[in-house]
C-alpha cells in the first residue's frame, strides 16, 4: 500500500528536477514570449518565497512587502540611470538600499503585535510610495522611463537582452530558494518551525525567537529589493503606483502562497504556478479575477489551512524538498482527524 505514494513522490521529485534543468536553460528552449513570461514568473516566485518565509515561519504577517519592491525599483533607477553606475552592480546595490530601509521599519513595526504589525507595514509602504512621488529626479508622481542606454547594456539584441534579464531573475530565485532551504534546515529554522507548531517548542530547542524573526525580516528585504530592480528591467518604468503596487507585489503574492500552501517550501512554488495558469484564463475577467482569487483563498483556508500542498501532502510520505530533520508524528499532516 505504501509504494503508491512513494512512486508519486519520486515522480514529483523527478518532475521538479526536470523543471529546474528546463528553466535554467529556458532561453535556449523557449520562445521569446515564453521567456518574458518565465521572467515574470521567477520575479513573482521570489516575492512569494519571501512572504512565505515571514508569514509561514517567522510569524510576521506583512501587508507591506510592496514597499521593498518599490524601494528596490527606485534605488536601481537611481544608481543605474541617475548616477550612471554599472546596471548589473546596481541590482545588488538596490537590494542593499532595501535592507537599509528595512532597519528603521523593523524598529517601528516590531513594537506592534501580529495584526497590528501587518497594518503597520502597510502604513510604511504607503508613506514610502507617497515619498517616492516627491522625488522629481524620478519623475515625481507620474514616474519616468528607464533610459534606453541601460536597457541596451543588458544586450544589444532583444533575444540576448531577454535572456540576460531572465537569468538574473532565475539566479535570484535560485539564491532565494537555497537561502531559504539552508535557513530552514538550520537551528534557527528548526526553532521557527517549532514555534509555529507549538509555543513551548522553540524555547525547548533554545533558539532566540526574537533574533530569528529579526534575521528573517531583514533577510527578506534585499531579495525583495533586487526583485524590484529586476521587475523594473521588465517594465522599463518606475512610477509610484506601479513600482509600489500593493495589488501586484503583495495581494497576489499573499493569495498565491495561501492557495499553494503557507508554511511549506513547496507552497509558494505551487501557488505561483497556479496563479500563472489561472491568469491565462482569467485575464479577460477584469475585477472578477481578484474576486475569484480572493474567494478561492478563503475557501482554501477554511478547508485546509496548509493550502493545496497541505492537501497533496496527506497522500505523500514526505515533502518534495525535505526540510524537516525528522518527521514528528504529532505534527505530520493528516495526523489530526479534523
Amino acid at each position: 500500500m505504501n509504494s503508491m505514494p512513494k512512486l508519486i513522490l519520486t515522480g514529483a521529485r523527478v518532475a521538479f528536477a526536470a523543471a529546474i534543468v528546463a528553466t535554467a536553460a529556458a532561453p535556449f528552449l523557449f520562445s521569446a514570449n515564453h521567456v518574458v513570461l518565465l521572467t515574470e514568473f521567477m520575479s513573482m516566485l521570489v516575492l512569494a518565497i519571501m512572504w512565505n518565509l515571514l508569514a509561514g515561519y517567522a510569524d510576521i504577517v506583512t501587508v507591506g512587502q510592496h514597499a521593498y519592491v518599490g524601494v528596490g525599483a527606485y534605488a536601481f533607477f537611481g544608481f543605474a540611470a541617475l548616477w550612471g553606475l554599472n546596471p548589473y552592480l546596481s541590482i545588488p546595490l538596490a537590494g542593499g538600499v532595501a535592507l537599509v530601509i528595512a532597519v528603521p521599519t523593523m524598529l517601528l513595526v516590531f513594537r506592534l503585535r501580529t495584526a497590528y504589525l501587518a497594518i503597520g507595514t502597510w502604513v510604511i509602504a504607503e508613506l514610502l510610495m507617497l515619498a517616492a512621488g516627491k522625488l522629481s529626479a524620478w519623475g515625481g508622481g507620474s514616474g519616468t522611463s528607464v533610459p534606453i542606454s541601460i536597457v541596451l547594456s543588458f544586450g544589444r539584441v532583444r533575444a540576448d537582452r531577454l535572456a540576460a534579464i531572465y537569468w538574473l531573475a532565475f539566479g535570484l530565485t535560485a539564491v532565494a530558494m537555497l537561502a531559504t532551504y539552508f535557513l530552514l534546515r538550520s537551528r534557527i529554522g528548526v526553532g521557527l518551525t517549532a514555534m509555529r507548531d507549538n509555543e513551548e517548542g522553540a524555547a525547548a530547542i533554545g533558539v532566540n525567537i526574537t533574533h530569528a524573526r529579526i534575521l528573517c525580516f531583514l533577510g527578506t528585504a534585499p531579495f525583495l529589493g533586487m526583485a524590484g530592480a529586476i521587475i523594473t528591467l521588465q517594465k522599463l518604468r518606475v512610477a509610484p503606483p506601479a513600482s509600489f503596487s500593493i495589488i501586484d507585489w503583495t495581494v497576489f503574492i499573499i493569495f498565491n502562497v495561501v492557495i499553494g500552501g503557507i508554511g511549506s517550501f513547496e507552497g509558494p512554488i505551487i501557488g505561483t504556478i497556479i496563479y500563472f495558469v489561472l491568469r491565462q484564463y482569467l485575464s479577460g475577467l477584469g475585477a472578477w479575477n481578484l474576486i475569484l482569487l480572493g474567494s478561492f483563498s478563503i475557501v482554501v483556508i477554511l478547508i485546509e489551512k496548509r493550502g493545496l500542498w497541505g492537501l497533496v501532502r496527506r497522500l505523500l510520505s514526505d515533502d518534495l524538498i525535505p526540510i524537516a530533520h525528522k518527521p514528528s508524528a504529532k505534527f505530520a499532516p493528516g495526523a489530526k482527524a479534523e
Binding site: 508569514a55 504577517v61 495581494v251 475585477a287 472578477w288 478563503i298
Partner: peptide, 28 residues
C-alpha cells in the same frame, strides 16, 4: 469564528480576502 483562536494569521488572511472581494465587487 471558524478561523479565530488557533492562529491570528488565518483571520488576517480571511479578512484580507474579504477586503479584496469587496473592492473588486464594488468596481464591477
Amino acid at each position: 469564528q471558524r478561523v479565530v483562536g488557533e492562529n491570528v494569521l488565518l483571520v488576517i488572511l480571511v479578512t484580507f480576502g474579504l477586503s479584496i472581494i469587496i473592492e473588486n465587487g464594488l468596481l464591477e
